[in-house]
Amino acid sequence: MSAPVVADPIRVALADDHALFREGIRELLSTDDGFVVVGEAATGDQAVAVAVEHRPDVLLLDVEMPGPGAAAVIRQVHRTRPQTRVIVLTMHDDDGLMREVFESGAAAYLTKAILLDELLAAARSVCRDAQTVLLSVSRRTLGRFGGHPAGPPPDPGAGGPAADRAPTAREREILRLVAARMNNAQIAARLGVTQATVKRHLTNIYAKLDARSRMDAVHRAAATGIITADGESGH
C-alpha cells in the first residue's frame, strides 16, 4: 500500500516594521506543520527583495512601512514574483485603502483583529485558487467599498469635525508632515516618537475626518481649515 502524499508546507514571508509583531506571527505559524516562514522584511523594499529571493507562496504585508507604499510593493511583487499571493494584514478597516491594494493585485485584505485560524484558512484559500479574493472588514467598510454608504451622509452645512472629534495639536502636526509627503519613519524621526505612535495618531485622524487614506485626510483637513492648503497648521 503506497504512503499518502504529504503536501509541501505553504511558504510564508512576513513584512512588517514591528519586529515583535513578526516574531509573534512567526511563532504562531510554527504551531502548524502546513506553514513555514522563509523570510522577513521591515521595509517595502525589503519585502520585494524577500519575495524575489525566497519565493514565498504568500507574503503577509503590513500597509505602513518605510519605503514604497503597500500598493507599489504589491505591484513590484507581481512583476518580479507573480506566483506570490499578497495578503494585506492591517490595523486599518478602510475601504479606500482596500480598493487601492486590490487594484494593485492583493489576494486578501485582513484586519489584525482576525484569529489565527482565519489567517491560516485565508492563506490556504488564496494558494489553492489564484482567483480567490478575501476580505475581513466591518460591514460599514464593506458597504462603502461597494459604493453603498452604511450610514447617513455628513451634514453639508457642517463646517468641520465636531469639537470632540477635532484633531489634536499633535495630530495637526502629523497632518502637516503627511502633506509634505513624509512617510511614517520620517515623521517619527522628526517628532522624536516611534512609528507605532505615528500610526496610532493616523488611525485617530482617519476616524475623526472620516478619511480613507493619508492624502484624503490631508485634503479633508485643508478643506475644513484644520491645515492650510500648503500644509501649515490652521485653526
Score class of each variant (00 low, 15 high):
4 P>H: 08
5 V>L: 04
9 P>I: 04
14 L>G: 00
16 D>H: 08
17 D>I: 02
20 L>H: 02
26 R>V: 01
27 E>T: 15
28 L>Q: 15
29 L>K: 10
30 S>T: 14
31 T>D: 14
36 V>K: 12
38 V>N: 05
39 G>L: 09
41 A>F: 11
41 A>W: 06
42 A>F: 00
43 T>L: 10
45 D>Q: 15
47 A>V: 10
48 V>K: 08
48 V>G: 15
54 H>P: 12
56 P>W: 07
56 P>C: 07
57 D>P: 00
59 L>F: 11
60 L>R: 04
62 D>G: 12
65 M>L: 09
69 G>H: 05
71 A>M: 04
75 R>N: 03
78 H>R: 15
81 R>M: 13
85 R>K: 12
86 V>N: 08
87 I>P: 09
87 I>Q: 14
88 V>M: 02
88 V>F: 04
88 V>G: 04
89 L>A: 01
92 H>G: 00
92 H>S: 00
94 D>K: 05
96 G>I: 05
97 L>A: 06
97 L>I: 06
98 M>C: 15
100 E>G: 01
100 E>N: 08
101 V>Y: 04
101 V>S: 00
103 E>M: 05
104 S>E: 09
105 G>I: 07
107 A>L: 00
107 A>G: 13
109 Y>M: 04
113 A>V: 07
117 D>I: 05
118 E>L: 00
120 L>H: 00
122 A>K: 02
122 A>L: 05
122 A>W: 01
124 R>T: 00
129 D>K: 00
130 A>F: 06
131 Q>V: 01
134 L>S: 10
134 L>N: 01
134 L>I: 08
137 V>R: 02
138 S>G: 06
138 S>K: 13
139 R>Q: 10
142 L>W: 06
143 G>A: 06
143 G>F: 04
144 R>W: 02
150 A>S: 09
150 A>Q: 01
153 P>A: 13
154 P>Q: 09
155 D>N: 15
156 P>E: 04
157 G>L: 10
162 A>C: 03
163 A>Y: 10
169 A>P: 04
173 E>N: 13
174 I>D: 02
174 I>Q: 10
176 R>D: 01
177 L>S: 05
181 R>D: 12
183 N>P: 14
184 N>P: 00
184 N>G: 10
185 A>G: 13
186 Q>S: 12
188 A>Y: 07
188 A>N: 06
189 A>G: 09
190 R>K: 15
191 L>M: 13
192 G>V: 14
192 G>A: 07
192 G>C: 10
193 V>L: 09
194 T>E: 10
196 A>G: 03
197 T>K: 14
205 I>T: 03
206 Y>V: 02
206 Y>L: 08
211 A>M: 11
214 R>K: 07
215 M>V: 06
221 A>N: 06
222 A>F: 02
222 A>R: 07
225 G>M: 03
226 I>A: 02
227 I>S: 03
231 G>L: 02
231 G>S: 09
234 G>T: 04
235 H>F: 04
235 H>V: 07
